[in-house]
Design a protein around this nucleic acid. Structure first.
Lengths: 104, 104
DNA sequence: TTTACTTACCTCGGATAATTAGGTATGATG
DNA sequence: CATCATACCTAATTATCCGAGGTAAGTAAA
């Protein structure tokens, strides 16, 4: 299923600042490995979100291992998130209406 | 939202045979204009579904106006539909878990 | 010390999907 | 006669995703 990566990312970053690699691992874990957002998908998505002004980044050096590039949601990003989330809920509603909701 | 057009189309055709133009109008109506599947999206999608063997078509001349190309789901299409539908439900579950379910 | 693994970033190319913007034709309505 | 609604279609562009790479830092084992 495509198109909702940026929504997902914005939502996760809204809870707390995170770095790319962390996002990949976290989403994999939280979804019980049922969908993996790949690095080749995530990094370009983050760059696009930043270009659009919905997130910013700051570097954080680590005592051990490579530095981490943390992302943070901007006010514009929060507005966007709110909008896209209600869009998502509308979308699901319509799909359920058309498809029939057999919630398990 | 992308990737679920074919699922939507299969589901609608599973209820009854329909023609392309009808599908466009019907989806627009049933979703209260909240998402419009465009003709440029639908027709290629139908052609692909047919090429994959999930639907077939037959022409029906009209007394008034242009002929209609009706589409019909095949047994393979029904199997596909069943599979894709449960996939969809799994997907929504995970998204809700990650995003938080504020059902309105 | 060299090899391999994990963390962490990234890009490029191909495939798929959606949209935009057209085109064709029939027939009804003003 | 012009315009609208019905009904089909494609081509070009844009967006998105994934696979397959690559860089670099630090750790652990052989």
């Amino acid at each position: 299923m495509k198109g909702s990566t940026s929504l997902l990312v914005l939502q996760m970053l809204n809870d707390r600042d995170m770095y790319g690699y962390e996002l990949v691992k976290e989403m994999d874990q939280r979804s019980d490995h049922s969908f993996q957002v790949k690095e080749g998908t995530l990094y370009p998505a983050l760059h696009k979100l930043e270009k659009q002004g919905y997130v910013t980044h700051y570097w954080q050096e680590q005592e051990k291992g490579p530095a981490r590039k943390y992302y943070q949601v901007t006010p514009e990003g929060q507005a966007m998130l709110k909008e896209r989330t209600s869009e998502w809920h509308r979308y699901v509603q319509v799909m359920n209406k058309l498809i029939g909701k057999h919630e398990s």
